[in-house]
């Protein structure tokens, strides 16, 4: 018996959806698609949270979103549905719509999944695979999807064993997969503010004097973000070791960074979720700071479809730091 869900059936349903959307609105709708965005999520992940994130992403990166929800069990059935995500831009009369295909499969039916997904991808556009659940991208059924994806996005912050997750990322990178970690993306505001301090020529000229680097993590202790940040600082300082980790009573994964040298003390401390206090010697400045939401991180990653050489250099050092 042929499977109920086929790429042809999904595409036909999608086509009918667009005809219906066009007929229902006098001004018509604008169909926008700049990439195929495959999002693999565990069944436990709340549909509302996921939907909200996808809707947020669509405004910046209109895509054909293919949402794969994997449930436990060996049930061979795969189910699917299509829907449109539409919004009316401010001051305009025509809605912009993107399409979403949801495919629900059990672990027992995963072997059929790649064939269906490959058949419904938007042709000739970049493909990005987002693995929301850490276990998903380890499953053999995902290998064909890893191969077609120009970019794979994972989040080591959600992993129960983050150090192993980093090792897995490094392993897949060595196989040629362009894997990116949202834990690294989350550091952009921190890295940017630190880099900015060294735009000052006098500070830059004393870079080599820095001999003590301290990263204060939040109360959950140093995790992927702290390891990546430490590794990035080592890379910038041109040394192999010398990072101290401390812990503060804070909910933020990184609370403070201190760089100390003979006559140079730079301190960056998160005062609130919007203000970072930067101290150079005796002079303190409050700088605007943004703690990025998951949606912000995805938005940043989806805007970069090329290789991230700095991440590639930092990853092995971060694994070394994670190993203590």
């Amino acid at each position: 018996m042929p499977p109920k869900v086929t790429p042809e059936a999904i595409l036909k349903e999608l086509s009918e959806l667009w005809v219906g959307l066009g007929a229902g609105d006098e001004a018509g709708v604008l169909r926008a698609c700049a990439m195929t965005l495959i999002i693999a999520a565990d069944e436990e992940e709340e549909a509302g949270v996921l939907g909200e994130m996808i809707a947020g992403i669509m405004h910046d990166h209109p895509s054909r979103a293919i949402v794969l929800r994997v449930r436990d069990g060996s049930d061979p059935d795969i189910e699917s549905r299509v829907l449109a995500l539409c919004w009316m831009p401010f001051g305009r009369r025509q809605q912009i719509c993107c399409e979403q295909i949801e495919i629900m499969a059990s672990e027992g039916s995963l072997q059929d999944l790649p064939r269906i997904v490959l058949g419904v991808m938007a042709p000739d556009l970049p493909v990005v695979l987002v693995c929301r659940g850490p276990k998903l991208f380890s499953l053999p059924a995902f290998q064909p999807l890893l191969s077609v994806a120009g970019k794979v996005i994972v989040d080591s912050r959600c992993a129960s064993e983050p150090q192993r997750m980093l090792e897995r990322i490094a392993g897949l990178r060595q196989l040629g997969h362009a894997i990116h970690d949202l834990a690294w993306t989350a550091l952009t505001p921190w890295r940017e503010v630190i880099a900015c301090a060294f735009d000052d020529r006098a500070t830059l000229s004393r870079l080599h004097e820095i001999h003590q680097v301290s990263i204060t993590a939040g109360k959950r202790g140093p995790g992927p973000e702290a390891w990546y940040l430490g590794a990035w600082l080592l890379r910038g300082l041109g040394v192999q070791s010398g990072i101290e980790f401390a812990v503060a009573d804070s909910d933020d994964p990184i609370h403070a960074v201190d760089l100390r040298g003979a006559g140079l003390n730079l301190s960056f401390t998160l005062d609130s979720r919007t203000i970072l206090r930067f101290t150079r010697g005796d002079v303190a400045n409050n700088l605007p700071f943004t703690v990025s939401s998951d949606w912000d991180l995805m938005r940043e990653e989806l805007a970069l479809l090329g290789r991230d050489h700095i991440f590639e250099e930092v990853l092995p050092r971060a694994i070394a730091l994670a190993g203590g």
Binding site: A195, F198, D200, L237, D308, I310
Partner: peptide
């Protein structure tokens, strides 16, 4: 100092920064 570049720069991800002024 001429020619020394900021090793923390990341042109892929950081917005172009401007010097203080």
């Amino acid at each position: 100092m001429a020619g020394v570049t900021n090793p923390f720069q990341d042109s892929l991800r950081f917005d172009r920064r401007v010097p203080p002024a």
